[in-house]
Design a protein around this nucleic acid. Structure first.
Lengths: 343, 343
DNA sequence: AATAAAACTTACCGCGCGTAAAATTATTGC
DNA sequence: GCAATAATTTTACGCGCGGTAAGTTTTATT
């Protein structure tokens, strides 16, 4: 590696022995220059480790090579896992992912979009907070920058939405629970912020009615994203006061279920499908930790590889074609029943 | 909000009625322009929502207002939590955090540093992978851009290291376990990648010897960051074959402990401090989920607020002064014993 | 070898801002 | 009220690259 420092593309081009525009072409698309030239540039590149100034590049380009990825809460391992998968897909497509977390706050969500606006990304994949989101501001953002939603839908916002088919997945687990024992009650927040929660509530009701059972809701107070804590503290109260209507409980998501499992343990209730168990608990999402709860959690696994891939492909398509979709796409993917020890 | 779109600072300055450089000064430091001018700019700002082009800004600045934050694995809720805290501190200091995850891979770690190099951050906070890290490349990076390490130390790399005092924290929990029952054996990976793991191993040995007990190591095979899985599968084997040397087990970290707890449950072993329990399990780190394991996990809580704050303050100091530290700082913070149900 | 096509060079402009130095304006002391 | 000084603003220049058009050289084709 040469000691000489290359200050800009002009200097680097001189070292290579070609003109600056040729070097510029190379960096935009190495295959757009002649084989021989490419080799020469690449040799020089190794000797001087020059890299174009990213700010100067993006100042003039209409579009950057960045794709924004905004998730509601990175502290939630579920979203951390999805984010990681999608990051990989973006990289594979030759773009740079920029991951931002809204930290469960609508203001932070808007602030993230503002940051992205400043960066002029080619596109954005957004998993919105849901009902807490400032929809108008997000819609305005999506007008400016190609945006697709995933996980949670906001009606009419963005080019597309990819998520889970809660009707299908909840029906799946409700039917399983009914088939294998007592029909479940539904454990959820009284006033959920997440649209999925509302869809699951309705899906549960419909599924129960379909099998001729009366839907029973256990609605607990609690706000925010501290689901484990809510599941634990409210669950403990309910169990100790024997206020649970059934001994089989389907939770609106895995994190609530993890809290409820802890509450049951705390109250000396053994959970599971064995003869000696007095309670069954199921969740939804296949949280990364669902495998290691005690007992391991029966749940629904979302197809987030499909969700991620469709989100990425859609945004890439829009970027390539340079024009928006004629019609907003909404596509839902089926969940898979993951049978474990808890139900 | 006016409909007229402001294209650049020139136009915006014209609208305000001052020169462009004055506006530029305002954005760099609002207090650097006269009160009257500031007010006028701010009024115009509300009417036209202009924002300077971030690429044009950074093209000419020697230093950007970005601080890089690299963690080994965002999928690990422990790091997700730390990252979030540090992000907040960076924001509070008036800088923009850029969070990157190394996804447990040395190549990704280097790739993250390369990305950061392109962005010319004012400073970087790096939690390295540890022994798997490509130390030379990281050291070279730290020469170019002010960098402090946290969580895991790499000898001599970066301006400073802030981490936990494993000697103190492990002694604390070893002494507690010895005081309250059978002395613990130490459950760990045979060949750990994390420097903390090695320090904890040694700290355990020293602490046991100090109380006049023989250190007993349970070393299991397994690589990577899939600690729960390793703890679970290896733990299950050990328990079923009755190969654990003691019924009190101190795990090298909480994630291993979570796996081991699941293994114990799987094998019908009741864990906890009650009369009817036949095993005690403790961890280290106070993982966000440690509160909701069954039973809840007795562990050591790292003072990552202090770790984060010192990391941020140190890098800010270097940035402000514009020069590196005379001497590398190494500062360790004490852990706190968190007594819960498992031990 | 003639021709066409591809690749490259030259020359120029524009992007949106930072920054040092010069010019202006405001403040202070007397 | 006036000069001296300090604070603020303006002038003037540069940053490192993208993009384009016209001209030149190289390569591929026949």
């Amino acid at each position: 590696m040469s000691e000489q420092k290359v200050r800009n593309m002009e200097e680097f081009a001189a070292l290579v022995g070609v003109s600056r525009p040729t070097v510029s072409k190379y960096f935009n698309d190495p295959s757009s220059v002649r084989e021989k030239t490419r080799k020469r540039i690449e040799v020089a590149l190794e000797q001087h480790d020059y890299r174009p100034n990213i700010y100067a590049i993006n100042q003039n380009r209409r579009q950057t090579k960045t794709i924004g990825l905004v998730v509601p809460n990175l502290t939630d391992p579920f979203f951390a896992a999805i984010a990681r998968i999608i990051e990989g897909m973006i990289l594979e497509a030759g773009f740079n992912p920029l991951l931002l977390s809204s930290h469960a706050g609508p203001d932070q969500e808007i602030s993230n979009l503002d940051s992205l606006r400043a960066i002029k990304p080619a596109g954005v994949l957004l998993a919105p907070l849901g009902r807490a989101s400032k929809v108008d501001a997000i819609a305005e953002f999506a007008e400016q920058i190609p945006t697709t939603l995933f996980d949670a839908n906001l009606d009419g916002v963005g080019e597309a939405f990819f998520g889970s088919d809660n009707d299908q997945s909840v029906a799946l687990i409700v039917e399983y629970l009914c088939r294998s024992g007592e029909p479940p009650s539904f454990f959820e927040l009284e006033d959920p912020v997440n649209p999925n929660a509302i869809k699951r509530r309705n899906a549960y009701k419909a599924a129960m009615e379909r099998v001729g059972r009366e839907p029973l809701f256990v609605r607990v107070e609690g706000s925010g994203w501290d689901f484990e804590e809510i599941g634990f503290s409210r669950g403990r109260e309910l169990i100790s006061r024997k206020q649970l209507p059934t001994s089989t409980v389907l939770c609106s998501n895995d994190r609530l279920a993890i809290g409820l499992l802890a509450a049951a343990f705390d109250q000396g209730i053994s959970v599971g499908i064995g003869e000696d168990c007095s309670m069954r608990i199921a969740g939804h999402d296949d949280h990364p930790f669902a495998r290691y709860t005690c007992p391991s959690l029966t749940t629904i696994s979302q197809d987030y590889v499909a969700i991620g891939q469709h989100s990425v492909d859609t945004i890439l398509g829009i970027i390539e074609r340079g024009e928006r979709l004629d019609q907003r796409i909404v596509s839902l993917f089926e969940g898979r029943l993951v049978m474990r020890g808890s139900a």
